[in-house]
Nucleic acid binder design. Sequence first.
DNA 1: ACTTTTATATGACAAATGTCATATTTTTAA
DNA 2: TTAAAAATATGACATTTGTCATATAAAAGT
Lengths: 226, 226
Amino acid sequence: MSKCEQCIVREFSSLKALTKNELVHLAECKTSRTIKKGEVIFEEGENVNGIFCIKDGVCKLTKLSPNGKDHIVKLVTKGELLGQRSMISDEPVNLSAVALEDMEVCFIPKSEVMSFFDKNNQFSMNVMKTICGDLKEADDLMVNLAQKNVKDRLAVTLLYLQDTFGKNEDNSLKVQLSRDELASMIGTATESCIRLLSEFKKLGLIELSGKKIILKDISQLKKMTV
Amino acid sequence: MSKCEQCIVREFSSLKALTKNELVHLAECKTSRTIKKGEVIFEEGENVNGIFCIKDGVCKLTKLSPNGKDHIVKLVTKGELLGQRSMISDEPVNLSAVALEDMEVCFIPKSEVMSFFDKNNQFSMNVMKTICGDLKEADDLMVNLAQKNVKDRLAVTLLYLQDTFGKNEDNSLKVQLSRDELASMIGTATESCIRLLSEFKKLGLIELSGKKIILKDISQLKKMTV
DNA sequence: ACTTTTATATGACAAATGTCATATTTTTAA
DNA sequence: TTAAAAATATGACATTTGTCATATAAAAGT
């Protein structure tokens, strides 16, 4: 079992507040797991009883709408924790988590996390701040969905993907979403999403090659986000 | 200055975890205020430096979209706290709060709340759970906005208003929103909102008399929320 | 009570978006 | 490698929704 002390990604999450002793203990409790692209980490309604620490890879958090379509609520990547909300609320998870690429994650049982809560005030504060950040982000997304048209939401989302997850050497977005996934992130039909991507391409805003998307005219895209 | 010990609404918020001593201390720090309908409690971007405890009345939390329109993110009522997120994140508030009716609120300075955080674990846990609840609610709203059409969102919202805030003796919704406000809650144009209300009326789903809205056919309305 | 302002309501039309059909390309699996 | 399946792309059209104009009703101020 690998040592949490030496794990770099820990530094990027609430876990950075843990002491050496706590980390040693954590290393004994946690279990590591590799997850293949497309695999489900947990499903809406499940009892997870702990949190996942993402060592590598990106996953999507989705929620099933009554109409049968999935909506992507959030993307979560290396260094972040998964399942904090439901653990604190003591409820089943309200979102499903599915890997967008091969991942490495560690699972930390609830009992362990709760003991950190009791003993380590800085850790609790970190978790709280993370959740508050998520809430603020959710408010922003809500207003976007409510007040912007699909074209503008697509522009916002493309910029968000590049800013948050970066680009490859060929300048294409690092996170590769299918048209279907992109559509379910901006809240529109797959065909509408494809159509708008084609339009953006014609306007020279982006370049498309297969699943790869390259942002060409950032400033023009930004104008749509205002 | 009224005593917090004897304040009933305290029982409905995170503050219920406070000890007698803490309540006595709280009563000395807090300031009470009445707020008229339509008055602004705080504005997006402001530094609030504390939280508000709502003793009576309802207010709306809004966020300004770049297009100049306000979106109502949430309604908050008697017994709830206001401004927790920004206090924990140590950031300006990301939403504006405006009274929908005459209100009575108490303001508790940040220093006071933070001292409760340090000393009273149950209080911190309560606040955390509240914020987690808000986050879950935000996820649900997001999916609604993204995947449902305007008509269905109106039905969902009307049911939500009745379930959450109740009805008067004449069966009309207790919280009275203008057509404009209702529209900015479901994310549509005021005219579309009015038109759909008229349609609902014609279909016998609701009754309208001035600003009053009475839900007549709950089960039919519920069918739209599926 | 009356004027002014604001909110609600509705029609007419334009624009945005969804749906269905179908073609093409890419990926997957035998 | 080839066949089958899935993803991407595009056209045609229907539906939904927004915008502007205007009418009516309600509320507010003098």
